[in-house]
């Protein structure tokens, strides 16, 4: 549960994380449990296989937070996470997806 209100939530700066991961059962659990155990809400999640399907790309939209740098380091330690790239909120992946949520 996130203790901040909806309005406060909207005012927070966002960050977008792009992860290359192995594609098998449980990988998403490993990724999101890094956030949930710290009561750090994930605002948006998008995941699709890439290439031949042996790996996937995960997009996460999260709030900018003093803990984000630590989160990225922890994600990089996960065995099934191959790379983590950090983008600003201006990244269009969630913007373009937004029309499916209207």
């Amino acid at each position: 549960m996130n203790a901040i209100s909806q309005a406060e939530n909207k005012a927070l700066a966002r960050a977008v994380l792009e992860l290359d991961v192995n594609n098998h059962a449980g990988v998403m659990s490993h990724v999101v449990s890094m956030f949930s155990r710290r009561a750090y809400n994930v605002e948006g999640i998008l995941c699709m296989p890439v290439g031949n399907g042996s790996t996937s790309r995960v997009w996460l939209m999260v709030n900018e937070d003093g803990r984000l740098e630590q989160m990225v380091k922890q994600l990089e330690k996960l065995e099934d996470v191959l790379a983590v790239r950090r983008h600003g909120a201006e990244h269009e992946v969630f913007e373009r997806l937004a029309e499916f949520f209207r």
Binding site: A25, G26, S29, H30, S33, R37, L78, E79, D80
Partner: peptide, 14 residues
Amino acid sequence: TYGLTIPITKHNFL
């Protein structure tokens, strides 16, 4: 067991 041990292992396998 897999789900239970995600946060307490370095890595786990089913």
